[in-house]
């Protein structure tokens, strides 16, 4: 059963900005990663789901209700974390959480208190004086505290330290186990690969792929940065065929490998290696790997965009 349904959703801001004919579903109990570079249209899509914008064409529904007209009804069962965090001036963290509980008509605060403890939120200070990470924690607690069926999270881990990112990941997995439906946007693959079941990739307002995360991971090339003892060694290594793609720059070689790496490691053992590092592939790389060709065609068609 699909909880979130987006059907032909279009919002044209002109100048190729906006979102165009998006269609995808998020099913019950699923964590859906919504991936795209900055300015691709992730937040615009989420604004439609929240009922802030009226679509030019198409429709977005949550739990079978139209997002624009039934938004108050939807919000009873939805938790939202905005991409840009800004709260009420002059409130401290706890006052804000209390205010939001009252606005939602919540009476049970046990889960909220549990989350405050989990994220070690120091809620006494004024929100205005809080650090980015602290505000992000407050926003996350605010989104989860009423135990909603659906969660929409816009770049949830930005500003969090690695420890808090881990806590957040665990929380998402826990909620998933409870059968919650979650849509979270991100511009980094690493951020969502631990939690998501499916990934939708958006670029320049167009949905280019909706993929199962396992497929994506399998198809994913890893990049290793190897520093050899001399440029000559690097060149000699480049002549072997235990890699898919290699670029050599002096003694440093960047190697991309798809799938099994044992052949690569065996051949590497014959050379003097000073340093071996993995490079986390960014979204653009992943994107280019899977959709590179078709995308380039698209880019050249839409080439007047930057003219």
């Amino acid at each position: 059963m699909s909880i979130i349904e987006i059907n032909g959703l279009t919002k044209d801001y002109g100048n190729h900005k906006g979102i165009f004919n998006l269609t995808f579903q998020v099913n019950k109990g699923e964590v859906f990663g919504y991936l795209g570079p900055n300015g691709a249209g992730k937040t615009t899509t989420i604004r439609h789901l929240m009922g802030f914008l009226t679509p030019d064409q198409g429709k977005a529904t949550v739990l079978g209700m139209d997002c624009r007209t039934k938004n108050a009804e939807i919000m009873k069962q939805l938790g939202y974390l905005p991409g840009e965090i800004s709260f009420f001036d002059g409130m401290n963290g706890m006052e804000f959480l209390k205010f939001m509980s009252e606005m939602r008509g919540m009476t049970d605060t046990t889960y909220r208190d549990k989350l405050v403890e989990l994220f070690q939120l120091d809620f006494r200070g004024r929100i205005r004086k809080m650090s980015k990470g602290m505000k992000q924690k407050l926003g996350i607690i605010c989104a989860f505290m009423h135990d909603p069926q659906v969660l929409i999270l816009d770049e949830p881990t930005s500003g969090l330290d690695p420890l808090m990112q881990k806590i957040f990941t665990d929380l998402v997995l826990e909620e998933k186990a409870k059968g919650k439906t979650i849509l979270m946007s991100s511009h980094s693959f690493e951020e969502i690969e631990k939690t998501c079941d499916r990934v939708g990739i958006i670029r320049s307002g167009n949905l280019v792929a909706v993929e199962d995360i396992h497929n994506l991971k399998e198809k994913r090339r890893k990049t290793y940065v190897i520093t050899f003892d001399s440029p000559a060694t690097a060149k000699a290594f480049a002549a072997t065929d235990h890699h898919d793609k290699i670029t050599v720059n002096g003694p440093v070689a960047k190697v991309s490998i798809l799938g099994n790496v044992s052949g690569f490691i065996q051949s590497l053992s014959k050379y003097t290696v000073l340093d071996l590092d993995t490079e986390s592939s960014n979204l653009e790389d992943i994107f280019m790997q899977y959709y590179g060709n078709s995308d380039q065609q698209k880019e050249s068609k839409g080439g007047h965009k930057n003219a």
Partner: peptide, 12 residues
């Protein structure tokens, strides 16, 4: 400021 997003994320 964006705090309206919070107001509208409640059932109002």
């Amino acid at each position: 400021k964006g705090s309206m997003a919070y107001l509208l994320s409640t059932p109002n």
